[in-house]
């Protein structure tokens, strides 16, 4: 088991390295001159050249990459060109915010999704099931900006129960930020709920086909024993994996939701960095998101292996 984890970690490291090269490569291709953006259009060429040297943009590409990657691994992520603040602090702050939002969303959709998916699978082809399945398809189809804006319109504008903007100052604690996390959390949860529900339903249906469910029933076991001991244990395994994988999305993929609500998360930071051509910030943000996604996949694999005795022994 430990060997397995170690091997996968090594894989993650290798892939991260490859990704870092890609990230670096792509950012180099970005059009638009950093120096123009910082110094303005009317800056002299000499000033621009000086800035370039200062930023290290005149060195050769491999050297730039080398400097960057060593810095990254050691924790020195450079300085943001647009805000002159250390990138590390910026990213960590935003990461914390994203984790808070992700946590709220996860708590909303994971348990409910599993429960509803189980119900839908057990009552396959009944009205409940159709309602849940089709409904979940509907929610998947609703883009986050649509559902987010509608939620704002209903709960903030019309009813005034919750704040319309979720901008929080740096360093806000979870409890203080919580009211502002509700609406974006719900927006995220709507999409996540649909996925978890469908996944659970599909795996429940799959498990119900199996012979051991028949054995359990014909052993005369009461329904709740059959459902919880036999069915759930096996149906949950793929679902839990999917949930673990979604952590990657919750950290770095919520760009739209964050934009709609003005929430200072990691996704918006990435967007900001791209728009401003702020290379150090962009590189760091992307790398962090990618590494977290890969780690989330790793956790999913480990959980799956742990839950599945046929692999473990």
């Amino acid at each position: 088991m430990l060997i397995f984890i170690a091997r996968r970690l090594a894989m993650v490291c290798v892939m991260s390295l490859v990704m870092s090269v890609l990230v670096f490569g792509v950012t180099q291709v970005l059009p638009g001159d950093v120096t123009t953006m910082v110094l303005g259009q009317f800056a002299t060429e000499a000033a621009k050249q000086e800035l370039r040297e200062e930023l290290g943009l005149t060195r050769s590409l491999p050297v730039q990459y080398g400097t960057w990657i060593t810095g990254f691994v050691l924790g020195d992520w450079g300085t943001s060109i647009s805000s002159q603040a250390p990138v590390f602090n910026l990213v960590m702050e935003r990461l914390r915010n994203s984790l808070m939002l992700g946590f709220v969303g996860l708590m909303m959709f994971a348990p409910l999704g599993i429960l509803l998916g189980l119900v839908a699978g057990l009552k396959q082809n009944s009205w409940t099931d159709h309602f849940l399945s089709v409904g979940s398809l509907g929610f998947i189809g609703l883009p986050e900006f649509v559902s987010g804006l509608i939620l704002i319109w209903v709960f903030a504008v019309q009813l005034g129960w919750l704040p319309a903007s979720s901008a929080i100052p740096a360093g806000t604690g979870f409890v203080d930020a919580f009211p502002k996390l509700i609406l974006p959390g719900v927006t995220v949860a709507l999409v996540g709920l649909a996925y978890v529900l469908r996944m659970t339903r599909a795996s429940t249906v799959e498990v119900l086909r199996r012979d051991y469910v028949r054995t359990a029933r014909l052993k005369g076991l009461p329904v709740r024993a059959v459902v919880f001991t036999h069915i759930l244990r096996n149906a949950l395994t793929p679902t839990v994996t999917v949930i673990a994988v979604s952590i990657g999305w919750l950290v770095g993929g919520l760009i739209v939701t964050e934009s709609v609500f003005g929430y200072p998360g990691l996704g918006r930071l990435a967007l900001f960095a791209i728009q401003r051509r702020d290379l150090p910030l962009m590189q760091a943000t992307t790398m962090v998101i990618v590494v977290i996604t890969m780690l989330a996949n790793l956790v999913a694999d480990v959980i799956y292996t742990y839950l599945n005795p046929t692999i473990r022994y």
């Binding site: 012979d211 051991y212 005369g220 036999h230 244990r233 005795p309």
Partner: peptide
């Protein structure tokens, strides 16, 4: 349904064709 389950469990024993499939793999 409850009585039927009692009969299934207590008075009828069943042996299946595919032994590996008939048992729960995670128990």
């Amino acid at each position: 349904a409850a009585d039927l389950r009692r009969v299934w469990g207590g008075q009828v024993g069943i042996v299946y064709q595919n032994p590996l499939g008939a048992l729960n793999p995670s128990m």
